[in-house]
């Protein structure tokens, strides 16, 4: 039996599937607990249902992108392991990089099924888990104290959140700026400083997504179609990604 057949065996699916099932049950447990607590605290259930619907639609498209990550890695690591890694802790931008680097570290040269060995595979698995588990380790050890120090829930008494809320919004704006800046940098200097020969597609896609979002906001605010807001991100992304297919042909 080839290594790839072993990596795609029912045993691998059962082991990885069981862990994913555990994570799904944990998520469901947190979802039900939060919903019940929200109800007890007097949060409008319509609002909570809107959040659930918006989060579900929001997640659909990026999830298909993550599925592509599973497909990309399945050629060298089999399907069950990438399926597990991208369902638990993993991140799309991280897994391929670490798997490739780990393959080099264990002496496989590159990440490919032809050079994969059983020892190499399990060492890559261990290294992939070791490298990205620290957020979970830190949240287990320190989140309670950290949130207490920051005063999470402290606004509950006064109802005034102070600067914390503005800081979080600003941090998110900073995150968006870093990514948008990287697309501009990639186009202008991606193939050498000021060569303007990098890909302009990410900039165009981001621009289309912004324009479609502007349309959604207009519909929501000026035409009193508040319901469109729940689908605004997913809708903007879908149309922007569709534009990438059209623009991809001329880029």
């Amino acid at each position: 039996m080839s290594i790839l057949s072993q990596l795609n065996s029912p045993f691998m699916y059962i082991v990885c599937g069981a862990i994913i099932l555990f994570i799904a049950l944990v998520s469901l447990f947190f979802l039900i607990r939060a919903y019940r607590a929200g109800k007890a605290l007097g949060i409008d259930t319509t609002k909570m249902k809107r959040v659930i619907a918006a989060s579900a639609t929001f997640t659909l498209l990026p999830s298909v992108g993550i599925l592509l990550g599973v497909i990309a890695l399945s050629g060298s690591l089999g399907t069950p392991w990438p399926w597990l890694r991208l369902s638990v802790i993993g991140a799309l931008h991280y897994e391929t990089q670490v798997a490739t680097a780990a393959a080099e570290q264990v002496g496989l040269g590159s990440l490919s099924a032809s050079s994969m060995t059983a020892t190499g595979f399990v060492t890559i698995c261990l290294l992939m888990s070791l490298c990205i588990m620290w957020g979970m380790v830190f949240s287990t050890l320190f989140s309670k104290r950290y949130l207490k120090k920051l005063g999470s829930g402290g606004g509950a008494k006064s109802g005034v959140p102070g600067f914390g809320d503005s800081a979080m919004t600003a941090m998110f704006i900073g995150l968006i700026c870093a990514y948008l800046g990287s697309y501009i940098g990639g186009f202008v200097s991606g193939n050498g400083r000021f060569t303007f020969s990098g890909s302009w597609l990410p900039i165009a896609v981001a621009l289309v997504a912004s324009l479609v979002m502007a349309l959604f906001v207009w519909l929501s605010e000026k035409k009193q179609l508040a319901w469109v807001e729940s689908f605004s991100i997913a809708g903007s992304m879908l149309l922007a990604m569709a534009s990438a297919v059209l623009l991809g042909g001329i880029s």
Binding site: P62, I176, A209, A240, A244, S251
Partner: peptide, 19 residues
């Protein structure tokens, strides 16, 4: 090209909302 640009589509939409 569509799946290569999931993240730019996401941040483009979020940018309008927040900026």
């Amino acid at each position: 090209p569509a799946f290569d640009n999931v993240v730019p589509a996401l941040f483009g939409a979020m940018a309008y909302k927040y900026f």
